[in-house]
Design a protein around this nucleic acid. Structure first.
Lengths: 166, 166, 166, 166
DNA sequence: TTTT
DNA sequence: TTTT
């Protein structure tokens, strides 16, 4: 029985093209380096930037999709879990790695330099999440023509001045 | 003391330009209609699309930023909390509303039809989250030139064929 | 192809025992009412509480698990997507509903009044997410006693006084 | 301007009591080791468990609260951002660390071995998030007994047999 | 190594 | 009402 939630949610840009390898069994393993930059004002009122570079790994079908559609510079949404591992190098030194193992990805904006195509798309992993579709175009039904909800927005003038409602 | 977590995380596109009103105290209240579309294969192997339209509200400084930068078609990341309310209409009928009250937003891709400008930017709410900066350009320090981590990726060939590692 | 992310993350307590119905095909559909309470200080320094009541729906195997283990008062983690629907009542009036359709759930603390057992457990939906296991009742074993990573924490004395590092 | 989202959401148990240090300026820096365990069935149908140990850091007021209320074994919800750093050890070797810097925490279940009190509580960081309150010890009151919304649930019998609605 |  |  599982106990615990371990979830990472990232939106960032790829620092390089994805790298894909295959296991002996033929499963794609695609890795990307993903930058998330945040900014804040320091005490002197200057902007301070900090970028974190995440190692993100996509397995299986999701690895194939990442390899095909992502490129250096691509903006992407990734959801996954944080994993830690250690590997002993050739020099006998242990090295520690943190990887985000992706469960879901969504391409954003589509301004990567590389791949001609792409557009935006959302994918979940492998044969495991039949709810979302991946891959080529695929017959697409007519766009939802859902009627706008008749629910009119309530008035806003009843908020207090310096406080944001719950 | 607070008990509970109430968090919504959305990535979608605006169905219309934002609408902004001001409270008597001068606080901006900006509302958008945000579409999130998901797809899955049905039993016959056909793609089924479903779009949910979320009412998202931005208060205060975040409301001003949303008003300035978001446009119909804009792609945006929104984080907030789910709120339910009821209002009695002029006909005496009660109506129920669900609103996502945004704490944070991040513009994505920037391909909205409207506003010339925009670009991408991430914002948190009002004077309350000094960690993130909002607003116009602002002096930006030199781009991080952080050295790539020397940590080399571990080999991948040790994964089993039909299974994805934890 | 899916576009958009629609995710709700909730931690709260059940206001009542779950209600389960079955479709003609025999699929369990379990609904709960989940309270998330947040608190803030108002301008006068007094604590203001606000509770949101979420309608959460579990389908299929996850619905069976929710029915078996959750009880009024249970604390639970729920992840899902926000859905909106309308139904016309017997009086011809349209009514609007917002439901969180759960993808994953994790029982917490286990202090529900009802069910004897429970303990904590994390579950994903149906046959669709083989990564997580459900079932096997099981009291909650002691927290993992695994040794902390040998990676020693870096020193902390280099932080500035009034500011929190990135 | 910030670009990117970097968010970790964890629910797990502490492997040890928190450790707190103070900066020269008097700011609390509390670190915990947090286990998140997940389970899946392997190809042979056996349950495979995997535990990740996260280093989580709380700064400032949140650090004081974590120090006061969390204990070895406590179950906790943590939200924060993933940060990577490197430090050179006394042996001249570089070591890499991954830390989750918490923005928000919520105590769950309250079965830690240590501190008598606690109960559940949700906290955000320091003077920076006035929306949530911390402090006020307080045993955990009964789950809100507020009446469920009068909006009646729609019927469920219209779902198909083997498929879960969007 | 990315991005604006 | 959006988007690909």
């Amino acid at each position: 029985m599982a106990r615990g939630i371990n979830k990472a949610i990232l939106v960032g840009n790829l620092g390089n093209d994805p790298e894909t390898r295959y296991t002996q069994g033929g499963m794609a393993v695609t890795k990307i380096s993903l930058a998330t930059t945040s900014v804040r004002k320091d005490r002197d009122g200057n902007n301070q930037e900090k970028t974190e570079w995440h190692r993100v790994t996509f397995f299986g079908k999701l690895g194939e999709i990442a390899a095909e559609y992502l490129r250096k510079g691509s903006q992407v949404y990734v959801e996954g879990r944080i994993t830690y591992s250690e590997h002993t190098g050739d020099d006998g030194q242990k090295r520690y790695y943190t990887d985000i193992v992706a469960d879901e990805m969504q391409m954003l904006g589509g301004r990567g330099e590389g791949g001609g195509g792409g557009g935006g798309g959302s994918y979940e992993r492998g044969p495991r999440q039949p709810r979302q579709e991946y891959g080529g175009g695929g017959g697409q039904s007519a766009p939802r023509q859902q009627p706008a909800p008749s629910r009119q927005p309530p008035p806003v003038d009843d908020f207090s001045d310096d406080d944001i409602p719950f």
